[in-house]
Design a binder for these strands. Structure first.
Length: 278
DNA sequence: CTTGTGTCCTGTAGGC
DNA sequence: TGCCTACAGGACACAA
């Protein structure tokens, strides 16, 4: 699932390939992939515009176009972006932007839950209201233990649910929330407001570090091939996962006799070590 | 405001 | 073998 490290990796790889190119053609094999505006307006207003830079907010990849136009992608669970040659038509291609130098930016999304949004910088559409309410980037200096403590204070939901709340920790999804809780030695079922001060400090640090590590290793590509880099290469963080996808296997913490368990929290699969996460 | 639940979507795994 | 169902999960609508 593309989370912050995967989207950031895509941003870094794609930016040098896209900047300066003009979008000269738009194909929308799956109209529902367009989040806003309507398909006709999307096609009309994206065509002919040049890419200025690529940015990211949480799990949104933002292609900044000339004159304050923005093209945002949310990859949801199974989406990725690919640079395809003129005659390459990848499976599950939902949107194709033909670029001035001949390549195309292809939005691949088997489950079709991902979306592309076109808008003006000064006019954020309702469909992207979530982006405006996002908390600080956990890899930025704004994300401190004090901030996290403040957001968890008095909350009765599980700490895992709040890590997944984009208003609290933007860019965090199911993989990195489980990994951060493991590194912080905090059990995902814990009531958020009841974490001790040292636990919150550990969690804030763990979250920042695990996301940075994810970026360093170009993200997590699961066995089913979900999430690929724009050149279809795989990430390498999956080899370093401590709990995600490791249920039934021994805990990786040194001298810990635990076996990784899988439970459900708020309808999400959650993995943790019952021995060293308390 | 907070918390929990259902929905979208489709490929895949598992059951019979 | 082949059909069918359950499941995966990010974001959001909605209920309590």
């Amino acid at each position: 699932m593309p989370e912050l490290p995967e989207v950031e990796t895509i941003r870094r790889k794609l930016e040098p390939r896209l900047v300066g190119q003009r979008i000269v053609g738009v194909f929308v094999p799956r109209p529902s992939i367009i989040g806003c505006p309507g398909v006709a307006a999307f096609r009309r207003d994206v065509a002919g515009r040049s890419v200025v830079r690529l940015s990211r907010r949480g799990k949104y990849l933002i292609v900044e176009l000339e004159r304050e136009w923005r093209l945002a992608f949310h990859l949801r669970l199974s989406g990725h972006l690919e640079l395809a040659g003129p005659n390459e038509h990848p499976a599950f291609e939902r949107l194709r932007l033909v670029l001035s130098q001949g390549m195309s930016l292809s939005f691949i999304e088997p489950r079709a839950l991902g979306r592309a949004y076109l808008f003006r910088e000064q006019q954020i559409p309702d469909a992207l209201a979530g982006m405006t309410r996002m908390g600080p980037e956990p890899v930025s200096p704004d994300f401190t233990a004090e901030y996290l403590a403040d957001r968890l204070r008095a909350r009765k939901a599980s700490v895992k649910s709040l890590l997944l709340d984009q208003r609290v920790c933007c860019g965090v999804g199911n993989i990195y929330s489980d990994e951060a809780l493991f590194r912080a030695r905090v059990r995902p079922t814990r009531t958020a407001g009841r974490l001790t001060r040292p636990e919150v400090i550990r969690l804030a640090r763990a979250l920042t570090r695990v996301l940075r590590d994810g970026i360093r290793w170009c993200g997590t590509t699961l066995a089913d091939g979900r999430y690929l880099l724009p050149d279809q290469a795989r990430g390498r963080f999956q080899e370093r996962l401590a709990v995600f996808g490791r249920e039934g296997r021994p805990c990786r913490r040194r001298n810990c006799p635990g076996v990784i368990r899988r439970i459900r929290i708020g309808n999400r699969g959650t993995r943790f070590c019952p021995v060293c996460q308390r």
